[in-house]
Write a protein that binds this DNA or RNA. Structure first.
Lengths: 223, 223
DNA sequence: CGGTTTTGTGTGACTAGATCACTGATCGAA
DNA sequence: TTCGATCAGTGATCTAGTCACACAAAACCG
């Protein structure tokens, strides 16, 4: 019993699954598999549709859109406690789409086979809510991406990104990576960063940006 | 029996629902409601989350994203035989998003209350497939929109739109409407159309575009 | 009917962003 | 320490979005 409790306690990390009735918790634990994937693993992508739903226990998955000309945009990130629920849509996709999911760090996840996923959706209202809420969140993310790309200025979006993704005032990323993140060209990032630096908001070094004036950045980001 | 058959035959218009077992067809027909909505009805939108899933029998629904500055982009259209599944996500949305669905023509639809939707998802694998496939298709549409906006040139996108939405070689739309469709500014459309006209591909009149050289447009669109 | 208002379109000037074609700097490995 | 790869800076040029208009065709209306 204690062993079982230890084995299924990952379920409680998912808000929305914790209320699941014991029988279904059992189904989840016995019929899913804990997997550990190294950084940069391609979880799904063109020509690689997944046959499992991943519930992330550790690490983050970056989902990005690829264009033929080699450019990219990041659509969203799934972090621990979330699921790659859009993969369930990919599982059924009649069309192979140009998005891919990549392990941004090493990840630990519970992999639920397609059939089990279907069983759970059928038998648990809580699980259904979990799934549809996850969908809702992801779709909202996509709406935000569209709004950003279509209607917001690059300088604002870049300032936001820097503030949002900096760790202790430092963002480790090359200009090219930031360009891929925002779906623009590397030169554009270089020029914007030069301007931010001129204003004294950041200091640059190879592969890293140090925030000197977070307030300045945030004020621009809030515009 | 004939009456019942007449009443539920709309189900067969939905590929993916036609195989539904009789008992569930009954649930669908008895617990859903046929509704007729006039053109330009706002089906869902900011501050107006729907409590029904609509299965479209006639007409088309346009789903578009609104920005604060008044600009718009069309995300996708749902036509007869399809469902507004993303509304199911909206039903649960913890955040009110800036997309809205509008009846582009008068529409006739079967409205399924949220509770019935949940029951059907629980009890029918076919219905689950129907729902998830519909999700998949919409998400794919969103990916396309993102790719278009981020990476494709306006002239190409405009040429595509014209070819795609023209009816018998004529597209009835103002420059402002096309701009909203593609998420750009009216002037940009005016200038591109002037160029298309200069090349002899189209003729313009107030509120309408006539295609003179579809091959030229399609060739550009294919780039 | 003529006059006013609304709606649709045309255009020049300017700013922002993307693309191209380079340069030089820095880092790590051979 | 030299070489190749990666990272960043920059001018020129093109495309797209913004602003501020002018003007014409329809719609409205007394």
């Amino acid at each position: 019993m204690t062993a079982a409790a230890a084995k299924d306690d990952w379920i409680d990390r998912f808000e929305g699954l914790s209320k699941l009735e014991p029988r279904l918790r059992d189904v989840l634990t016995t019929r899913s598999q804990l997997v550990r994937l190294p950084e940069d693993t391609v979880i799904f992508g063109p020509g690689k549709s997944p046959d499992h739903l991943l519930l992330l226990l550790q690490g983050t998955v970056r989902v990005q859109q690829l264009a033929e000309n080699g450019r990219e945009v990041v659509l969203y990130r799934a972090t621990a406690g979330e699921s790659c629920v859009l993969t369930t849509a990919c599982m059924l996709a009649y069309e192979d789409h140009a998005a891919e999911g990549i392990a941004e760090t090493e990840i630990v996840a519970a992999a639920i086979p397609r059939g089990v996923f279907d069983d759970l959706v059928a038998s648990s209202k809580d699980f259904r809510n979990f799934v549809f809420r996850a969908y809702s969140r992801r779709i909202t993310d996509l709406f935000h991406v569209i709004e950003d790309i279509a209607f917001r200025r690059m300088d604002i979006r870049l300032a936001q990104k820097i503030v949002e993704r900096a760790d202790h005032g430092v963002l480790k990323a090359t200009h090219a990576q930031l360009a891929a993140e925002l779906g623009t060209a590397r030169e554009v990032i270089s020029r914007q960063l030069a301007e931010f630096q001129r204003r004294g908001w950041i200091a640059q070094s190879r592969g890293a940006i140090e925030i000197l004036d977070g307030a300045g950045l945030r004020q621009l980001a809030a515009t």
